[in-house]
């Protein structure tokens, strides 16, 4: 996947989990959880949806990498490059 595709896929996953939030206008460098209502259960669902869709395990110590949209894409891109 390209960087752009990773971003789109992540946005789709988030909007499936929080359909009532405005996901498309997320600001790239600000914490996702500061912009939309996303609790820890929702956050874990994002991790699990990624695992389900792409069979990628994200270890718990890497969770901080998924704080903003930009850091998430940077982190996920190498993992999803062949997907």
């Amino acid at each position: 996947m390209t960087k752009e595709e990773v971003k789109t896929s992540l946005l789709n996953i988030i909007s499936e989990i929080v359909p009532d939030e405005d996901v498309m206008n997320l600001e790239g460098n600000t914490s996702i959880r500061d912009q939309i209502d996303l609790d820890s259960m929702d956050f874990l669902d994002i991790i699990m949806e990624i695992r389900k869709k792409y069979q990628v395990e994200i270890p718990e110590e890497d969770y901080p990498e998924l704080a903003t949209m930009n850091s998430s894409v940077t982190y996920l891109e190498p993992l999803l490059v062949d997907k």
């Binding site: 499936e16 989990i17 929080v18 009532d20 209502d37 609790d39 259960m41 929702d42 669902d45």
Partner: peptide
């Protein structure tokens, strides 16, 4: 948001 009902709905999609 962040109520038991909202959480239930979200978790069950």
């Amino acid at each position: 948001k962040s109520t038991p009902l909202a959480k239930t709905l979200r978790q069950l999609r």
